[in-house]
Amino acid sequence: MKTTMLLSISRVFFFLITIVSFSQNKQLKDHVLFYSSFDGKLSADVSVGDAMMYTAENYKKTANAKTGLHNPNVVLAKNKGLTGDALHFKKANTSAIFYKAHKNVGYSSKSWSGTVSFWLQLDPNKDLAPGYCDPICITDVRYNDAALWVDFTDHDPRKFRFGALGDLEVWNPENKNDDAKWKKRTVTVNEPPFEKGKWTHIAITFSKVNTTKSTFKLYLNGQFKGVIKDVNDPFTWEAEKGKIMLGLGYIGFMDELTVFDKPLDISEVKSVFELKNGIKTLFN
């Protein structure tokens, strides 16, 4: 009798968990602005704006960018992804490889919120070339002027950072090195969990940018790592020039690049991290 009752309770509990998970996944699906699985193609699986990937010689020559990949050291790696294929940067990348951010990141000059989610695989202390590298940088100009980015520092061992730097003329008008200003606008992880042969999930969230209540958070493998707040620098873009820049100086794998139109909370970030077959699970 007791065993039968316990089995019934277990079934009900499992059913409820399944329903909650399905409901949350459906809700997350409705908030996807952009998703590139890199499975057999470079173009995004889901996009509100331009779905194509672009390559230019460098970021000063993006007006001459061509669709597709035109760097032999950056390739689609068959069956090397979290699921399916992945983007592989085989040598330190100096070319401009990007998706257009216009509409794909939901930028607003009045109040901008969202989440950028992706996976990386590398050993930063062994794989990267000397110097800093930015796997992701989202801006219309450069890394220190109205930009969101993550980077690996040139320390030994390497540190991992999330930066949210508003208009350069506001936060650093003289463009001088100022550690206090940098630290206020970055989250630094001194011992990040990246390993060779192991995928690491990164999520950066941003809330109410271009208001007086902006907040930025970093998560690694579903765990909260830090917050940037009480800064409130404006992020002024020429929206159509915005770019999702990929793999600046990076060596390693990248997969499952996704932009949501809202800042995911920690339970939602964990849900994305735990998706067995990646973001495509949300669309099945």
Rank of each mutant, 00 (worst) to 15 (best):
P157K: 09
P157I: 01
P157D: 10
P157E: 15
P157L: 08
R158P: 02
R158M: 05
K159D: 04
K159W: 13
K159S: 12
R161N: 12
G163P: 11
G163H: 09
A164F: 09
A164E: 10
A164T: 08
A164C: 09
A164Y: 12
A164I: 07
L165P: 02
L165G: 03
L165T: 10
L165R: 13
L165W: 15
G166A: 08
G166Y: 00
G166T: 01
G166F: 00
D167T: 00
D167I: 00
D167Y: 00
L168K: 00
E169F: 00
V170G: 04
V170A: 04
N172S: 00
P173M: 04
E174C: 02
E174L: 08
E174W: 02
K176M: 10
N177L: 05
D179N: 13
D179K: 14
A180I: 07
K181A: 14
K181G: 02
K181R: 14
W182E: 11
W182K: 04
K183H: 13
R185T: 06
R185K: 08
T186S: 12
T188W: 03
V189G: 01
N190R: 08
N190Y: 10
P192E: 09
P192W: 05
P193N: 10
F194Q: 05
E195Q: 15
E195L: 12
E195P: 04
K196P: 03
K196F: 05
K196V: 01
W199M: 06
W199E: 07
T200A: 07
T200S: 05
H201T: 09
I202R: 04
A203E: 13
I204Y: 01
I204A: 07
I204H: 03
F206P: 05
S207I: 04
S207P: 02
S207D: 15
K208M: 05
K208Y: 09
V209Y: 07
V209C: 12
T211W: 06
T212E: 11
T212Q: 13
